[in-house]
């Protein structure tokens, strides 16, 4: 699968996935998240876009079970749905709520001696509702917690929605970047961190999976 063939698996603790709309970021992050759970990680998926139920159904259909979803969609849009065993709901403006909830889940997984993977889809929604400084302050706290717990986290950022200063500031907080692009109906990705650089590779989306061409 993708992360394996790119041999970046598990290296960066905080990985940013950036690309234009519809290039396949969401499918990518779900696959990466799924793979980690399949390896024995406990998963926390924070969604600000897709309904939590849809993500839960998809993960269950792939045969994994050890995950929790933080739903930042329903409460933001004023629907007051109750929590479910696998789904915790918060407003996207309630950043403290998010850090507190993630910490609680960390604690539970730690008791079971599990490593944790976090997926965040997407930071762009946060930046839409809150100002940049607020989001950066939040991410500063959040990404340090990811590092100290030895977890891995993937964050989606929409390309073209934010100015370059914001993107540069975000990159500062993360220690790896996976970039996606679309050219003449072909899709490419490349990866970069302080020690590894993988140049553009073509990939395809097949049946909800990402296939990198060799």
């Amino acid at each position: 699968m993708l992360t394996g063939s790119l041999s970046i698996n598990g290296k960066p603790s905080n990985l940013m996935i950036i690309g234009p709309p519809l290039v396949g970021k969401t499918i990518l992050i779900r696959n990466m998240f799924f793979e980690k759970i399949n390896e024995g990680f406990g998963g926390i998926f924070i969604t600000t876009r897709s309904p939590a139920e849809e993500i839960a159904d998809w993960l269950s259909s792939q045969g994994v079970d050890d995950f929790k979803i933080i739903d930042c969609v329903s409460k933001t849009t004023m629907q007051d749905l109750p929590d479910e065993p696998k789904i915790k709901r918060l407003s996207v403006m309630d950043l403290t709520g998010i850090t507190v909830k993630v910490n609680e889940l960390f604690k539970e997984y730690l008791k079971d001696e599990k490593k944790v993977v976090v997926a965040f889809d997407s930071l762009s929604t946060l930046l839409m509702y809150l100002n940049e400084q607020t989001v950066l302050r939040f991410l500063h706290v959040f990404s340090s917690r990811i590092r100290t717990t030895g977890a891995v986290a993937f964050y989606i950022v929409e390309e073209g929605m934010h100015d370059e200063k914001t993107i540069a500031a975000l990159k500062q907080l993360f220690n790896g970047v996976l970039e996606l692009k679309d050219e003449n109906n072909q899709r490419f990705l490349r990866y970069m961190d302080t020690s590894v650089r993988i140049d553009w590779k073509e990939f395809e989306v097949q049946d909800n999976a990402i296939v990198v061409k060799t």
């Binding site: 409460k75 004023m78 007051d80 407003s91 403006m93 403290t96 709520g97």
Partner: peptide, 11 residues
């Protein structure tokens, strides 16, 4: 109330 809806805070 500035970070969540009144309904949520009442809950």
């Amino acid at each position: 109330v500035s970070s969540m809806s009144p309904e949520i805070i009442k809950n």
